[in-house]
Design a protein around this nucleic acid. Structure first.
Length: 165
DNA sequence: AATGACAGTCCCA
DNA sequence: TGGGACTGTCATT
């Protein structure tokens, strides 16, 4: 039996994102794409009240961050990943808007100071970009590093928080 | 089961 | 400035 999930659009000033929810919370956010494929989502016609509520919170949180502010509330998050990745994502959430950390600082924060490169991999695997602010992680030498959604998005998100590279 | 590639960083020459 | 070691995960062999 397949786990049910729900996909819903997030229309913002920066474009139409897509949120995907599991039965436990927000599982994934996709950046606006020129072309959107059909998804085969289960339950698209019947969205449970709980998911609608999560979605309202997600929308507010996303808009807050796009405006460079810290969201008052977050939806429950249910990103799929390994224990290591979840530790990294948890550490990322502590970076406030307008602040940045290096991959090395994240590695030290989770007690694996030598796993710097693996931290980069975990950032790239983050299923909930923007809300889990992987865009606030820069290389130790101040360079921008990479971004799974494209470096233009990373620069744009940072600029919205008042950070120029 | 082994190898290579990656959103990194430090060290040593 | 350049090469090697180090780490977790995934695709490829």
């Amino acid at each position: 039996m397949k786990t049910p999930f729900y996909e819903m659009p997030l229309v913002t000033s920066a474009g139409k994102f897509t949120a995907r929810y599991s039965e436990l919370g927000l599982a994934e956010i996709k950046f606006p794409a020129a072309r959107r494929k059909a998804t085969g989502a289960v339950g698209l016609e019947i969205i449970p009240p709980g998911v609608r509520k999560w979605h309202r919170i997600t929308k507010m949180a996303l808009k807050s961050i796009l405006a460079g502010r810290s969201p008052k509330t977050f939806p429950p998050l249910d990103p799929a990943g390994t224990e290591f990745q979840k530790k990294v994502w948890h550490a990322l959430r502590k970076i406030m808007p307008g602040r940045t950390k290096s991959y090395g600082e994240i590695a030290r924060a989770i007690g694996k100071p030598k796993a710097v490169r693996a931290v980069g991999g975990a950032c790239g695997a983050n299923p909930v970009p923007v809300l889990v602010p992987c865009h606030r992680v820069l290389a130790a030498n101040g360079k921008i590093g990479g971004f799974s959604g494209g470096l233009d998005w990373k620069r744009d998100l940072l600029a919205r928080e008042g950070i120029e590279i």
